[in-house]
Design a protein around this nucleic acid. Structure first.
Ligand SMILES: [Mn+2]
Ligand SMILES: [Mn+2]
Ligand SMILES: [Zn+2]
Ligand SMILES: [Zn+2]
Lengths: 141, 141
DNA sequence: TTGACAAATGCAACTAAGTTGCATAATAAT
DNA sequence: ATTATTATGCAACTTAGTTGCATTTGTCAA
C-alpha cells in the first residue's frame, strides 16, 4: 500500500492527503468490493468528517489512474476494489456474502472467437455468479 | 406474442390492458434490452399517456412471472428483455450498440466445479463483453 | 347487463446514488 | 514565504426507482 502512495505522489500528480490515505487503506483492508455510500459511512464511523463528493471524486481519480476497478453485482450501486489479478465473484443472494474466485479457465479463447466471428473487439468482460453460499444452502433445507 | 397474452390472461391472473399490451409488444420488437426510462419515453412518443410508476410496476410483474429478464451493462439503469434462450451480450463502449451472442460454450461445467471446490451453489450468472463493434474499430484507427 | 371484487393506474411525495459549480483550503515545489 | 495546482465542502441539482393512497378499469359471475 505504501508503494501505491509513493507511486501516486511521484509518478502521478496526486497529493498525499489524509482522505486519500484513508480511502486507499480502507479499500486495501476490504475483503470484497465496496460501494461509495458504504465507504463514506465506514470512513465517517472511523472519525473522518469527509464529504460524499470527495469520496465520489476520489473513486473517479483512482479509476482513471487504474488503481481501482469498478464492479457491479446487479445492484443499483457501483462497487470498487483495488485492482489486482483478474478474477470474478460469487455473490450469495441470501446473505449478500461475496467471495472472490480466481477463474483459471480464462475467456481469451472465447474473445478471440468473438473477434473472428462477430468482428467485435473485446476490451473487457464481466462475469459474476449469483447463488447460495455454503451456510445459506444449509439454512434453506 | 399473442400466446404470451393468452398465457397471462388464462394461467396467471393478469388483465389484458392496453399498457400491458403496448409494453409487451415494445419489448418484443426491441433488438436489445431496454431500460424503464427509455421504455417510458418510447411509449409516450407512441402516444400512450402512461405513468412511470406503471412501467416500473409492470416490469416487476413481468419479472415475477418470469416473462422478462433483467440485465445490467455497467450502467446506472436496469435493462429488460423478453426471456428467451440463455445468451450474453457484446456492448460497444463507443456507440453503445448491443449485440446478442449465443454462448455455445456453456458454463455449467464451471458451475459444477464451483460447487465442488467452493461449496457455492450457482443459481445464475451474468457474462457481458465490453469493447468495440466493427464500425467503431475502423473509426478509431 | 349489471354489480362486485381485484387488479391496474395516476399522482405526489419520497429515497438514494451520483454530479456539478463555485468558493475556500491544503499541498508541494520554487 | 509565494505561488500554482490539487483537494475539499457545500448546496443545489439530476435521475432512477419506490410507496401510499385515491380512483379507474377489467373480469367474471349472478
Ligand atoms: Mn474482487
Ligand atoms: Mn439479449
Ligand atoms: Zn449466504
Ligand atoms: Zn460501436
Amino acid at each position: 500500500m505504501n508503494t501505491v502512495i509513493q507511486y501516486l505522489l511521484k509518478e502521478q500528480r496526486l497529493r498525499n492527503t489524509r482522505f486519500r490515505q484513508a480511502i486507499l487503506q480502507t479499500l486495501d483492508h476490504q475483503a470484497s468490493p465496496i460501494s461509495a455510500p458504504d465507504l463514506l459511512r465506514k470512513l465517517q464511523i472511523s472519525g473522518y468528517s469527509i464529504n460524499k463528493t470527495t469520496v465520489y471524486r476520489e473513486m473517479d481519480i483512482l479509476l482513471a489512474k487504474g488503481l481501482v476497478e469498478e464492479v457491479r453485482f446487479n445492484e443499483d450501486v457501483r462497487r470498487y476494489e483495488l485492482k489486482s489479478a483478474h478474477h470474478h465473484h460469487l455473490i450469495c443472494q441470501t446473505c449478500q456474502k461475496i467471495e472472490e474466485i480466481a477463474f483459471a479457465h480464462d475467456l481469451s479463447d472465447k474473445e478471440a472467437e468473438i473477434l473472428a466471428t462477430k468482428k467485435f473487439k473485446v476490451l473487457k468482460h464481466s462475469l459474476e455468479f449469483f447463488g447460495l453460499c455454503e451456510s445459506c444452502q444449509k439454512k434453506c433445507k
